[in-house]
């Protein structure tokens, strides 16, 4: 136990002396990580908020399927239910829909109206609930290719749009995250390499007096992890500040924006999950950066 504390003390001291050697290069590495994680965090957060907003708008997963006049809904219903991404299928027979429609139109005499039109003019309708918003257009195509189907309609245009925005946002955030991750790794590697060069005397002596490779490279690993953690911490502070500022602006608004605000709040789970994700990515980036640098260190 005592020996372990000793070793940890040694590692921390070596890491600290490396940090001091780094000077402003440390800031270069930390700020790059910070910018990366800030943008990454914003993307994740926005994606979650759009999810919440979609929920807020109601069931965006429902598709209305209108059958051809002579087709019986009862026959088609099991065929549709077998399709992938289908959660549930509800049949709305025309006998049920017709009086409802007339009632909505303010006509009370159903029999008279029916006679006037020489029968019920409506067709059977299926209400299909999909499991996945992304797959709705695919599902609609499949349904329309079935026999006896006139057309499938996705009523919620707004949710469709949001789905598209979310999808392109996901694409953008993946590109941004990958590019900035590479940048951050490069900056961390360069910083640690410079520190290794500044300390090459010590590293050489360590190798000559029989320090194991692990013992030599662990301080560099720790150094990289510190970059990641501190960068993540700063990014979280920035994100928190931004969220506060936006909330401040939105609370003074009314109507639709007020409605938006409710959609934009994160759930408690998300509030806890976000720091975990950001810090994990930060530590990973720091470790990968130091691993690249360590290959150089080991060769010194």
């Amino acid at each position: 136990m005592l020996a372990l504390i000793n070793k940890i003390k040694y590692l921390l001291r070596e890491t600290w002396s490396g940090l001091r050697r780094g000077g402003w290069m440390n800031w270069a590495a930390i700020s790059t990580v910070m910018v990366l994680l800030f943008l990454f965090g914003i993307c994740v957060q926005t994606s979650w908020q759009l999810d919440a907003l979609l929920e807020h708008f109601g069931t965006q997963l429902e598709v209305s399927v209108y059958l051809e006049p002579e087709t019986e809904g009862r026959e088609i219903q099991p065929l549709v239910a077998e399709l992938p991404y289908v959660e549930a299928v509800r049949l709305v027979p025309k006998e049920e829909a017709w009086p409802n429609l007339l009632r909505e139109l303010g006509i009370t005499d159903v029999t008279a109206a029916t006679e006037q039109l020489e029968g019920n003019p409506l067709v059977d309708e299926l209400k299909v609930v999909a499991t996945d918003l992304q797959q709705i257009s695919w599902l609609m195509n499949r349904i329309e290719s079935l026999p006896g189907i006139d057309r499938a309609v996705h009523l919620n245009e707004a949710t469709d749009r949001f789905g598209q925005i979310q999808q392109s946002l996901n694409g953008v955030s993946i590109v941004v995250t990958v590019v900035l991750s590479l940048t951050a790794i490069a900056v961390i590697t360069t910083t640690l390499n410079l520190i290794a060069i500044a300390r090459r005397n010590e590293l050489e002596i360590m190798q000559l007096v029989g320090a194991t490779k692990t013992w030599i490279v662990l301080p560099f690993m720790l150094h990289g992890i510190i970059f990641g953690t501190v960068g993540a911490g700063l990014a979280l502070v920035l994100m928190w500040a931004l969220r506060m500022a936006i909330a401040q602006i939105l609370t003074t608004q009314t109507g639709f924006l007020q409605f938006l605000t409710e959609g934009l709040t994160l759930t408690p789970i998300q509030l806890h999950l976000l720091p975990v994700i950001v810090v994990t990515l930060g530590i990973t980036i720091g470790m990968v950066g130091s691993l690249f640098a360590i290959r150089r260190v080991a060769m010194l």
């Binding site: 000793n6 070793k7 002596i205 007096v209 194991t212």
Partner: peptide, 11 residues
């Protein structure tokens, strides 16, 4: 002392 520290010896 650095030598002994680098070898992981006790304080």
């Amino acid at each position: 002392a650095f030598v002994l520290q680098a070898q992981g010896r006790r304080q």
